[in-house]
Nucleic acid binder design. Structure first.
Lengths: 161, 161
DNA sequence: ATTGGTGCAAAGGATTTGCAGTCTA
DNA sequence: TAGACTGCAAATCCTTTGCACCAAT
């Protein structure tokens, strides 16, 4: 049983792309760093993609598609809703960001590339990153040889009441 | 740090009801057992609720609202879609079943009351229960005193390719 | 010229809501 | 009879799709 080192994403529609990483990023990412990141993931850097990535990597955060659209257009760029969905699907698929399913109503995209778990406060709706050090150890299951873990999601839901 | 012993559910809309359990159930649940279960959770046993619960607790399973509707109506009962949604919301809220968010498109309801984690095969869409013994240990995070863990979700996504 | 990418509006699909009718204590 | 529950259809909300236009190789 191994400690987890997985950071990846699965898309049913686009296939998946397992991406192991503990990439360190210094937020915010500058434009040149965004460009090399996109290059690293073999994503052609269109204006919209670069602007979306710049917005995402200002800080580690968890954003819905709507919030991303608002954020990007709010800072003066013209990007359509469809492009946000397309781009986030692409980013998630390539491993640039991670999809997080916590809220029944919405997919969140996580711009924190480090291996981590989540703490979700049901009273406030707040979603916080936590790291193995604070959690103790999470061990992976024993699996048949033909199966390979490509992602691990751990969410602790907490209340303050 | 403690080993997890949490089985509960959170509903943003209805509030939540933390429910700790390692309740043992012998599947399938008979009607009389369904009735006492509902009573235990202080849920008044209408025809529809009983029929839905009977369907759910035939075996440990993960079902979407649609599948539940199909299953219940398929076995001869008349239940509306809205009632399925209402009832599953109620059951989940009271702790009778657990919501599982894995598929971006749909909520699954888990009728297995034991503490367990999930293995999701992205190639087949198959969702399997796994237990701590097979996983090693999952430790809970150190938390400020005012926060209390009411639920823990662990999903390992695997591929067979 | 071909391929890839974007934007708009319409479509799709899961879930919720409004409200009238029904049951039950 | 009041309060709880159900059912239907319409509405809502997030996300995807179809398709025309634009950009770059």
């Amino acid at each position: 049983m191994t400690k987890l080192q997985v950071f990846s994403y699965i898309s049913k529609k686009l296939g998946y792309n397992a991406f192991m990483s503990n990439m360190s990023i210094t937020f915010p990412l500058e434009r040149s760093e965004v460009l090399s990141m996109l290059q690293h993931f073999k994503i052609s850097p269109t204006r919209q993609r670069v602007e979306i990535a710049e917005f995402l990597f200002q800080r580690p955060q968890h954003l819905s598609a709507e919030k991303i659209l608002d954020g990007v257009t709010g800072s003066g760029s013209r990007v359509s809703r469809a492009t946000v969905y397309n781009t986030m699907g692409l980013f998630a698929n390539k491993g640039v960001v991670r999809e997080v399913l916590i809220d029944r109503e919405r997919v969140f995209y996580d711009s924190n590339p480090k291996v981590h778990q989540h703490l979700y406060n049901v009273d406030t709706g707040e979603l916080t990153d936590i790291y193995d050090a604070e959690v103790g150890t999470i061990s992976t299951p024993d699996l048949p040889e033909d199966l390979k873990i490509i992602d691990t999601d751990v969410v602790f839901k907490v209340t303050s009441k």
